[in-house]
């Protein structure tokens, strides 16, 4: 299935967001997620299924003012 990860197209086998994060190499990294522009809490990732064309944003702590 093809999804968009942080603006880049990726081909993944994972069925859920949690599985996708593993597959995409985020492992147990500290990240925040949004699916198709809506906030997706960490607790919902194991049950949130992905669909072809979904847009997944994976954000991490960064410098800010």
């Amino acid at each position: 299935m093809k999804i968009e990860l942080n603006g880049a197209e990726r081909d993944i086998a994972a069925a859920t967001v949690a599985e996708a994060l593993d597959e995409l190499g985020f492992g147990d990294r500290r990240v925040a997620t949004a699916l198709n522009g809506a906030f997706l809490p960490a607790s919902a990732r194991p049950v949130q299924r992905l669909h072809d064309g979904d847009r997944l944003e994976v954000l991490t702590p960064m410098q800010g003012g």
Binding site: N6, G7, F26, R29, R30, V31, A32, E57, V58, L59, T60, P61, M62, Q63, G64, G65
Partner: peptide
């Protein structure tokens, strides 16, 4: 300390550990 959220660019983990 103010911080932001951004797409991962390979530095996020180290930055957060330091903060």
């Amino acid at each position: 300390a103010t911080v932001s959220l951004r797409r991962e660019q390979g530095q996020g983990g180290a930055f957060w550990d330091m903060i």
